[in-house]
Computed example of a mutant assay.
Amino acid sequence: MSDAAALLSALVAIPSVCRTPNGAIVALVRDHLARHGVEAAILPGPEGDRANLFATIGPRDVPGIVLSGHLDVVPAGEGWTGDPFALRQVGDRLVGRGAVDMKGFVACLLALVPEMVRAPLARPIHLALSYDEEVGCVGVRHMIARLPELCATPTACLVGEPSEMRPVLRHKGKVAGRLTVRGRAGHSSRPDLADNAVHLAADLVGLVRGLHEDFVARGPFHDMFTPASSTLQVGVIAGGTGVNVVPDTCRIDWEARAVPGTDPMTIHDALLARVAGLVDPLRAAGREVAVESEVLSAYPALDLPDDAPLRSLAEAWSGHAALGAVSYGTEAGLFQAAGIPSIICGPGRIAEAHRPDESIGLADLDECCAMLRRVIAQQS
Rank of each mutant, 00 (worst) to 15 (best):
H320M: 11
A111G: 03
W317N: 03
C250F: 07
E133H: 13
D72P: 00
R141A: 11
V73K: 02
H171N: 06
E149A: 04
S318R: 01
A55P: 02
G240N: 11
G348S: 03
A284E: 14
E161T: 13
R209M: 02
R190C: 01
E47S: 07
P300Y: 13
G333E: 05
G45T: 15
R251Q: 09
G82R: 07
R209Y: 07
S293Q: 14
A197C: 05
M224S: 11
A111I: 02
P21D: 02
G98Y: 02
S68V: 01
A316M: 12
P44C: 02
I267P: 00
T226R: 15
E47R: 10
A51D: 03
N196M: 00
V275K: 00
D192P: 04
C137D: 08
P148T: 07
A238M: 02
C18G: 13
R251T: 11
A301E: 10
I57L: 03
L8W: 09
N244A: 05
C151H: 09
R170H: 07
D366I: 04
A270W: 15
D253M: 04
S189W: 05
S9N: 14
H268N: 03
A27M: 13
V289Q: 01
A351I: 14
P300W: 11
M102A: 09
T231E: 04
V375N: 05
G37D: 10
G361P: 05
P120D: 12
E47N: 06
D269S: 12
A285F: 00
V275R: 01
S293D: 14
L94A: 15
R287A: 00
V138C: 04
D61I: 05
L272D: 11
G23T: 10
R30E: 06
Y131T: 11
P63S: 08
I14M: 04
T330V: 14
A238L: 02
A13T: 09
A107W: 00
A258G: 11
R374M: 09
P305L: 03
D203I: 00
C137G: 10
D203E: 01
P63C: 05
A40M: 00
L296C: 12
A353W: 02
N52L: 04
P341S: 12
E288H: 00
V245S: 08
S312P: 01
S130I: 01
A338P: 13
D306G: 13
E315H: 07
L362P: 08
L282W: 07
E292D: 12
